[in-house]
């Protein structure tokens, strides 16, 4: 159990990217009336940005 939780926490930046940043981006785009590019939905756009950003943060160890 502890090992599983440690693995979850180790991948937390990626999970944070898709679990929080993605819907946050989508909802901010709705709030500010910004359409997603290339005809994709706002949440799909959020998932691409959030997922990629989280994965990069996981690998690099830095969000910026």
């Amino acid at each position: 159990m502890a090992t599983v939780l440690k693995q979850v926490l180790a991948w937390m930046p990626f999970f944070f990217g898709i679990g929080f940043i993605a819907p946050l981006i989508a909802q901010l785009m709705v709030l500010w009336d910004i359409p997603a590019p290339f005809g994709i939905s706002r949440i799909a756009f959020g998932l691409i940005i959030g997922g990629t950003w989280g994965l990069v943060a996981n690998i690099r160890g830095r969000w910026l």
Partner: peptide, 10 residues
Amino acid sequence: FTMAWTGYAI
């Protein structure tokens, strides 16, 4: 995560 995916991310 729960709040964000139920529409309360902000």
